[in-house]
Every structure is written in C-alpha cells, then in structure tokens.
C-alpha cells in the first residue's frame, strides 16, 4: 500500500471523529448532551458522504437528520422534563450482571462479525453506468432526481403516503384526550 493520499487522511480523521462523537453520545449521562453529540456525528457523516461523491445525500443528511429529526428529539427531551426520568437514580440495581455480560458479549461478537465481513468480503456486483465522471458531468442532484421521478416513481409515491400516515398518526397518538 503506497502513501496515503489527501482524501484518505481526511477520511481517517473524520472516521476517528465520528467514532469519538458517537461513543460520547452513548456514554454521556445527560440526554441533552447526548443529543448534541449525535448532531455532531450526523454532520461528520454528511462530510463523509461528500467524500464518497453523494452530494444530494449529504445535504439531505444535514437537513433531515441533523435538522429535523434531532430538533424533534431535543424538543421531546425538553417536553418530558428529564429531571424526573434521569438515568442512574435508584435504577442502577435494575441493570444487573446478566445485562452487563450480555452487552459485553454482543459488543464483541457483533464487532468481530462485522469486521470479519468487512475484511473478507468480495465485491461481486457489476459496475453501474453512473461513474463519478458521468455523474459530475450531469450533476448529482439531477441524476438522483431523474431516477426518483423515473425508475423509482412508484416507491416515491408510496413514501409520500407513508409520510402522510406518519403525520396523522403522530397527531392522533400525541393528542390529549
């Protein structure tokens, strides 16, 4: 393996940052801090998508995840007043030894499995027609849009129905009776 290029160095730095922020997200006690670390993770993921030539998804990541979903989560955290539902107060005994052992076991097994898969996989698919040069000459968003409104029009409409059901369902569930 020859010397790492600029892209690889940037990617590795971003990967380390993503792992660090997601670890902080999982380990921080305060739910608000947890959510803020999650937003940092989402922004770093958006930059990684940019490095992988997925500009449309990078923008959608920032708008949908870091914007809409995390705003919703922060709002709900404030709504349910975390003082009453804070972790670690009196509930520590509930997380018993079997749960801890199961957690450790799942960490090791899952990580080993995923890393083995990542190291020994073989990319078996055929190369598609949308190489970087082709996509850049047309424009990434234009390519995605043409596919969404062409080949994938029916799933796109189904997704709109799903969103409508989600809106109505959320209102019905959260309505005060």
């Amino acid at each position: 393996m020859n010397a790492l290029g600029f892209q690889e160095i940037v990617f590795i730095a971003l990967a380390v940052a993503a792992i660090a922020t997601s670890l902080l997200m999982v380990t921080t006690k305060d739910a608000i801090h947890s959510a803020l670390w999650m937003i940092a993770t989402f922004f770093i993921m958006a930059v990684i998508y940019l490095l992988l030539n997925a500009q449309f998804i990078a923008v959608a990541q920032v708008m949908v995840y870091a914007g809409a979903i995390m705003m919703l989560i922060l709002f709900v955290i404030m709504l349910v007043r975390m003082e009453t539902g804070q972790e670690g107060t009196g509930g520590a005994a509930r997380r018993s030894r079997p749960v801890k052992i199961a957690g450790a076991l799942i960490t090791v097994v899952l990580l080993a499995e995923l890393l083995l898969g990542a190291f020994f996989y073989q990319m078996s698919g055929r190369s598609g027609e949308y190489s970087v040069a082709v996509v850049n000459s047309i424009g990434s968003v234009r390519t995605v849009g043409a596919l969404l409104y062409g080949q994938y029009l029916f799933p796109f409409e189904i997704a709109s129905i799903l969103l409508l059901v989600g809106i109505v369902g959320a209102v019905v569930i959260a309505k005060r009776k």
């Binding site: 997925a54 449309f56 998804i57 959608a60 990541q61 949908v64 995840y65 990319m123 698919g125 055929r126 190369s127 598609g128 027609e129 949308y130 190489s131 970087v132 082709v134 996509v135 990434s140 390519t143 995605v144 596919l147 969404l148 994938y152 799933p155 997704a159 799903l162 969103l163």
Partner: peptide, 15 residues
C-alpha cells in the same frame, strides 16, 4: 460500484 441506487435507497431509509 459506480451506481446511483445507493443514494435512492438511502433517500427512502431517511424517509
């Protein structure tokens, strides 16, 4: 694999 389908799938996962 120089394909665009990944972006489409991620779009639906985000939805």
């Amino acid at each position: 694999l120089s394909s665009m389908d990944g972006s489409i799938f991620v779009f639906f996962i985000m939805t």
